[in-house]
Design a protein around this nucleic acid. Structure first.
Length: 995
RNA sequence: GCCCGGAUGGCGGAACUGGUAGACGCGUCAGACUCAAAAUCUGGUUAUCGCAAGGUAGUGCAGGUUCGAUUCCUGUUCCGGGCACCA
């Protein structure tokens, strides 16, 4: 009886589905475990062996937890809305719903081959109206909520209206615009439209007018995390800043909680760091400087120089920039103020100039008449530059405004410059520049010849800024002699006393842009009436996406929905939600996927709670993971769920890289005749020959070869070039090319000739990203057909740690396949048939079994599947050596194998006459008594130097060993006059006495 | 530039809180079975010296702590990943 994996796997996959073995029920009487995969975007491209890695790992773990008695939720679905489907529709005229559906079907077909234990009854698709009804509903909850910073949680907007009517907004400054301040009376005086405008600025999902990342090629705006190096993440199209009306999520109000939440979840350090860097919390101070601006109108010709400049202290000698500026006429005090944000208020005495962003509103008010043209030109220049150029070039640019700020402690005037290195969107859009301590400020000062004040003495060498916090301050007035890091607090207190500065926390993270000018996404359940956004009645949900024939953008940057008359007639919002909307809460829907009354019943979400284990790639670090964490927190605040972090533990699977193979084609220059023949008969040289390219014998060797191939003994070659080409890895065995398959691979290679080494054509190799264009993809279907799903699953796990990236090598799969056949042979012999028996197992056999169970159980539990597979292999090898065919032993072995190779385990389970399914078998308990070891001679050493041996039972405890060793006569002699510091007992190796 | 992570045989990788390297698999070599091949099985496989028993060196490099270091500390090189004018 042979191991016929393909029959076995088909049979059981079918049987399990028929029996509903993977159906999961909410059952509060049992402990739950929730294992979740990041659901895929159903793209049209086929799968390669890298894709299922995470799914296999989660499947192994889900099955393991099930055997251990947990009620395991392990669902799957599709993130079906998104740009590529729409792009495909534009290019091919196929409706996204149709192509998405087709893609999902082919996905499912490929995945089903591998034998996953998903409960498909719980499948969700974000593009399904039954699903996005609730995405829209949650959006409305966010729209109807605001973030109460005093309580640190989201609250209904109705409450906010009540507060405004009672006390205005003085206790709750407007997050959208801090300048908006009003009393209760004023609030009541506002008209409806104004009130709505104000409320909009508080909502968690709000519509605002702001600078966005506009991608012309995609015809939509993108969130910050969808823009990489100035181009779109999808497609790599250029992205520019543009002012547009957009929807946003007020994720910034959750910044602190998103940060704090990281402390109570089990994510990798690098993942936590990526998220906290993205949030980018920094502590510092805002400092306000008085600004003295010169006349902004040109002085009349011949007018006398004004000398009534007050408040200007004398300038330090040898300060040419200030000297020249202050002698100029036309400077008058003006009532302007410039607020900067700094993390280093301790360096305030080192400020040599100020820099404002080119978009800063103060510029037009303070620019001197003299500098007017220069400033205008500079701003025009900055506008002409794309985000991309700015990032790529990093040129030092800037210009002087002609205005000065006044130092609050020294009274010195500090020139105010404009430069693009200061970003309008961060902090106050203005900085105080301290060249001796900040590298950018230093370079700027150098470039524009601005004198540098040194406040850190010898720590500053004049050629490089030093951002230390450890130096003692000099030239710093009341801070002199204080170490910088201590001076920070001191300075802030002083600034607060003077009323010109305050402690301030800043975040890099911006509110998330939440609208797309696209078709294939969730419509917003919003109607616009006279500029007021009115939420659709929840009874009207889902607001279904209308069918369209054309997917082009609407007028004036609006989405395709603006071309649908029925849509615009109702004044419905024409934008759609971004790709991350549906994925921000899908883990909740799986808990209660068919509920029409509510997005997820409280009973279901209370039972299933957090995702215990979430598996997926790192690429969602700052997108999906952050958004879904925010949604969870908002839903928690509103009392809709009982937990505020969605994922308890996150595992990021590594990438499986491709192992590319190369062939080397000759490009010959010689007589016309030769070139013609090479065209018809391409010649490839093996790696060994190509490797000596450049050596003297290379030319001779190739010439000889070519003469042979074309049978022209006198042929001469002028020059030989070699081009390197990717070749399909599937026609290469290790590094040896299957030359016949190669000839069939491409029509133009049908007549190919090869120059070999040792009778083989050896390919070059390199590890690269797996991709179709590099011909290094391996299709899982092929491997499943050839070796079976069980082998494939085990091999993917055997490759190495799940979290680690590693290159794919198909050859090794043979080893795992051999293992499964070897296992089979413990039960059945090819000739004799059944060889398993019901005899009683020997202690040696049980010892081997329990050792294996212990190791596999531990490894599986701690997610070390590669060593788990190894342990199974060792177990089978040992039982084979022991010629153990006993059911008592084997049936336990296959239970622990089940998570890895469920099909063969089930088949054997049945064949040895067990009732029921192995999927429901209990996980075997380790009988420790069989692991007890027999006595063994140990070498005893003093300080590592071996002296003698002692017979000790292998399961003796440390104390027992110590007592025996110290009682030994020989040891006693050694120790005369010494007392042992320590007796170290090294299992299976030696006993070391340290004196 | 900054912040993480890593470096172990020909290859993928083991080694749990320091315990006396290289598990397991691939590849490879030798042998058994076979007319032969495949499959299967057995044994060897870090390098080096030795017929052998055995010795010596060895976890990127240079030091340190320790009876003992792949594991801890300091410095350094290289590779991978993330961020990138965030004041």
């Amino acid at each position: 009886m042979e191991y016929n994996f393909s029959d076995i796997e088909k049979k059981w996959q079918h049987q399990w589905t028929v029996d509903g073995r993977y159906k999961v029920k909410t059952d509060p009487s049992r402990p739950k475990y929730y294992v979740l995969d990041m659901f895929p975007y159903p793209s049209g491209a086929g799968l390669h062996v890298g894709h299922p890695l995470g799914y296999i790992a989660s499947d192994v773990y889900a099955r393991f937890k099930r055997l251990k008695g947990f009620n395991v939720l392990h669902p799957m679905g599709y993130d079906a809305f998104g740009l590529p489907a729409e792009q495909y529709a534009i290019d091919h005229g196929i409706h996204p719903a149709v192509s998405t559906d087709a893609n999902i079907r082919s996905f499912r077909k490929q995945y089903d081959n591998i034998g996953f234990c998903y409960d498909w009854d719980r499948e969700v698709r974000t593009s399904d109206a039954k699903y996005y009804k609730w995405t829209q509903w949650i959006f409305l909850q966010l729209f109807k909520s605001w973030y109460d910073r005093r309580q640190g949680k989201a609250m209904p907007v109705e409450d906010l209206v009540g507060i405004f009517e009672k006390e205005g907004n003085l206790a709750h400054p407007c997050p959208g615009n801090t300048a908006t301040r009003f009393t209760a009376a004023e609030w009541k005086g506002f008209d409806h439209r104004r009130q709505e405008e104000i409320l909009m600025n508080y909502r968690l999902a709000y519509c605002g007018y702001g600078e966005v990342n506009w991608c012309e090629a995609l015809g939509t705006v993108l969130a910050n995390d969808e823009v990489i190096n100035g181009v779109s993440e999808r497609g790599g199209f250029p992205v520019v800043k543009k002012k547009l009306r957009q929807w946003y999520l007020r994720i910034t109000d959750y910044a602190d909680r998103l940060l704090e939440g990281l402390e109570k979840v089990d994510f990798s350090d690098s993942m936590k760091e990526m998220q906290s860097n993205w949030i980018g919390k920094s502590f510092g101070a805002e400092i306000t400087f008085d600004v003295y601006a010169p006349d902004t109108t040109p002085a009349a010709p011949g007018a006398p120089p004004t000398s009534h400049v007050t408040g200007f202290a004398a300038h330090p000698p040898g300060d040419p920039s200030l000297a020249t500026h202050t002698t100029r006429s036309g400077i008058t005090p003006a009532p302007h103020r410039l607020t900067v944000y700094t993390t280093r208020p301790d360096t305030l005495f080192g400020v040599d100039f100020m820099v404002v962003a080119p978009e800063h509103e103060l510029i037009e008010k303070i620019t001197s008449a003299e500098q007017h043209t220069t400033v205008e030109e500079y701003i025009a220049y900055v506008k002409s530059r794309s985000e991309r150029e700015r990032m790529a070039e990093k040129k030092i640019t800037g210009c002087f405004t002609g205005a000065y700020a006044v130092h609050p402690f020294t009274g010195l005037h500090i020139p105010i410059w404009i430069s693009e290195y200061v970003l309008a969107g961060y902090g106050t859009g203005a900085i105080m520049a301290v060249p001796c301590g900040d590298e950018r400020d230093f370079k700027f000062a150098q470039y524009f010849n601005i004198p540098i004040t040194n406040i850190i003495g010898e720590h500053f060498n004049g050629t490089e800024a030093n951002p230390t916090k450890e130096a003692k301050l000099e030239n710093s007035g009341f801070l002199d002699g204080i170490v910088m890091k201590d001076a920070i607090v001191f300075m802030i207190e002083k600034l607060e006393q003077k009323g010109i500065g305050t402690r301030k926390v800043n975040y890099r993270m911006r509110d998330a842009s939440f609208s797309r000018q696209r078709y294939w996404g969730e419509p917003f359940p919003i109607i616009w009436q006279d500029g007021i956004a009115i939420p659709l009645d929840e009874k009207e949900l889902p607001l279904k996406l209308p069918h369209v024939e054309k997917y082009g953008p609407g007028p004036e940057g609006e989405g395709p929905l603006a071309n649908v008359p029925a849509w615009t007639a109702r004044h419905l919002e024409t934008n759609t939600m971004p790709g991350y909307a549906g994925s921000s809460w899908y883990f909740l829907r799986y808990m209660d996927p068919h509920n029409d009354e509510v997005f997820c019943s409280r009973a279901a979400s209370d039972y299933w709670g957090q995702v215990d284990l979430y598996i997926g790639g790192t690429e969602h670090a700052v997108g999906h993971l952050l958004y879904s964490r925010m949604w969870t927190k908002a839903l928690y605040d509103l009392g809709l769920i009982g937990h505020d972090e969605p994922y308890k533990r996150l595992v990021n699977q590594g990438m499986i890289q491709g192992s590319s193979r190369f062939v080397y084609r000759l490009e010959l220059k010689g007589t016309h005749q030769v070139e013609e023949r090479i065209k018809k008969t391409p010649v490839f040289i093996t790696y060994g020959i190509r490797n000596i390219e450049g050596e003297p014998e290379f030319h001779e060797l190739v010439t000889l070869g070519v003469r042979n191939i074309f049978n022209e003994p006198s042929l001469e070659l002028d020059s030989i070039a070699v081009s390197t080409l990717h070749v399909d890895v599937n026609i290469v065995d290790g590094s040896e090319l299957d030359t016949e398959a190669f000839k069939k691979w491409r029509a133009e290679y049908a007549n190919a000739q090869f120059m070999l080494e040792d009778g083989k054509y050896v390919c070059g190799t390199e590890v690269e990203k797996m991709s179709k264009s590099k011909f290094n993809t391996v299709n899982p279907d092929d491997l499943v057909n050839r070796y079976g799903a069980d082998t494939f699953r085990m091999y993917e796990m055997f490759l190495g740690p799940v979290e680690q990236s590693k290159p794919w090598d198909t050859k090794g799969i043979e080893g795992v396949h051999r293992f499964l056949r070897k296992l089979w042979r413990l039960f059945f012999d090819e000739n004799k048939g059944k060889i398993w028996t019901t005899e009683q197992a020997t202690p040696a056999e049980l010892k081997s079994l329990y050792k294996t169970i212990k190791k596999v159980e531990e490894d599986t539990e701690r997610f070390s599947f590669n060593t788990g597979v190894s342990a199974l292999m060792i177990g089978v090898n040992e039982l084979t050596d022991l010629k153990c065919h006993k059911k008592e032993v084997l049936e336990k072995l296959i239970v622990i194998l089940t998570p890895y190779a469920p099909h063969v385990a089930e088949e054997l389970w049945q064949l040895i006459g067990n009732p029921g399914s192995i999927l429901d078998a209990p996980y075997p308990k380790v009988e420790e008594k069989y692991l007890v070891e027999t006595a063994k001679n140990y070498p005893i050493a003093i300080n590592g130097k071996t002296r003698t041996e002692l017979n000790i039972a292998l399961d003796a405890t440390q104390q027992q060993v110590e007592a025996m060793v110290l009682a030994d006569e020989t040891v006693k002699k050694w120790l005369e006059g010494n007392s042992p510091k320590k007796v170290i007992y090294v299992r299976n190796k030696m006993i070391n006495v340290v004196i």
